[in-house]
Structure formats: C-alpha cells, structure tokens
Amino acid sequence: MSEMEKSEEPVGPLDGQFEYKTNKDGTINKHVVVCSHCKKDFSFHRSTSSLKYHLNAKHTFVGASTSGVTPGMRQTTLTERRALSKSTSEKLNDKIARWIAKDCRPINIVEDTGLAEVLKVATLDAFYKPPSRGTVMTKINELYVAKMKTKEEDLASAEHMPCIAHMLQRSINVSLSDSGFTNVLAKCRKIVGHFRHRKC
C-alpha cells in the first residue's frame, strides 16, 4: 500500500461512530471496524445494520441519532429534546418521593443507575438526573407534615360532633314521647296500682 494510503484516515461508518481498524503495519483494514465508544471490534462488509443495532442496544442516545433518515425528515431524538421545565421536574420529584415513602423503598434507590436510565427514556430528556437523597428526604418530610395537618384539622372538626350512642338515645326518646306510648304505659300503671290497693 502506498504512503498516501497509509497516511489517510477515512471517516468510519455512521459518521465516525465506528473507526476502521489499523493494522500493525499502519495500514487501514476496511473489513474490520471498532466502536468509538466501547472499542469493540466488528466485521464490516458495507452493511451497517449490525452496527446500528449495537449503538441502539449499548449506546442508546448515540444510536438514536444514527437512524439514517434524511435530515429534515428525521424525528427528534432524545439528545435533541429540551430539558424538563422546572414545574415538571418538581412534580416528578414529588412523585418519586411519594413512591419511595408509600412503597417503603430505600432512599438511596435514587442513586441507582438503572432508575436514572429509565427516567431518561420516560422523560425524553437524556440529561435528566433523579433527585438527590437529601431532596427526597425533604419532600417526604413535607408530605408527612401536610398529612398530619390534614388529620389534625379533621379531628378538630369532629370534636364537636355528638357521639353515636347519644344520638341514638335521643332519637328513641323523641320517638317514644311522640308515639303515645307514654300515655298507655301510665294507664297500665294506674290499673296495676288499683288492683294492688284492693288486695291490701
């Protein structure tokens, strides 16, 4: 191979996401490419299907931008998405705190790289970072205080309500006094008293 061929550094497949492998003698092997991200070797015979699969499987956010669709007609990728707004981020942090508190998850779960990757895909924000442990603890404390306040207000409003037994007794007394039963009972007492008096 000529000196010119040795000195050339052709751009590898998929816009340089892969590089042609360099032989020990300095020549370029165009049948073997190396991933520029993880340095893994791949056989290359003009088709880029397996290379795209590798990027999508191992390097998600890079692979999304190498779909090969004509510029201008290509869908927006994760790396092109705008960051979450402050209000949306706050709502998401609140939901994460509620999930941790309700399901008794450990606070350090927010440091799990797997959770971070899931949230990046779910939010379509490649740069999203889960809240820190301190933020989650603060959120949980705020939720606890708010819940306690609600319960205290409910108890305060129920403090002046009559008990069920008292309400039932009052209802029975009112019903008896309005039913004429009291008069019948009084007459029965007079009759019984009359016969007792005669026996004496």
Rank of each mutant, 00 (worst) to 15 (best):
R98V: 03
A101P: 01
D41R: 14
P131M: 01
H45Y: 11
C188F: 11
T48R: 02
V62C: 02
A83H: 00
L84V: 01
G72A: 08
V192C: 02
S67C: 05
K149A: 15
N23S: 09
E3A: 12
T66P: 00
V145H: 00
R170M: 08
K129L: 11
D25K: 03
G180D: 04
L51G: 03
H59K: 08
V33L: 04
F61Q: 04
F42N: 03
P13E: 03
K58I: 06
K139N: 04
L155T: 09
R198P: 01
K21I: 03
K91Y: 07
R105H: 05
K40D: 10
P162C: 08
I140S: 00
K21R: 13
K190T: 14
D103C: 02
N93S: 13
A186T: 07
K95N: 13
E159S: 11
N173M: 12
L51I: 10
A126W: 00
D94Y: 14
A146K: 14
S179E: 10
H54K: 03
I107H: 08
A64P: 00
N108V: 06
F61V: 07
G193Y: 04
Y20W: 07
V184C: 14
E159R: 15
T79N: 08
L155S: 09
Y128Q: 05
L176F: 10
R81W: 10
K24S: 09
A126F: 06
C188A: 10
K120S: 12
A57K: 13
E80C: 02
L185D: 06
I96L: 12
C104H: 11
I191E: 09
G72I: 03
H194N: 06
K147E: 09
I107E: 05
S175E: 14
N173V: 12
Q75A: 15
E152F: 08
F127D: 15
C104E: 07
C38D: 15
H45N: 12
K6T: 00
S47H: 14
K95W: 15
K40R: 11
F127E: 15
A97C: 04
I96Y: 01
N173I: 02
I100C: 04
G72K: 05
T22L: 04
H59R: 13
K40W: 08
I191C: 06
V34E: 05
E90R: 09
Y20G: 00
S67Y: 10
R105C: 02
K86G: 03
S7A: 14
R196D: 09
D15P: 00
R46M: 13
T66N: 05
V174M: 13
S2N: 08
K30A: 05
A158L: 12
N29L: 10
R74F: 04
N29E: 11
H166D: 10
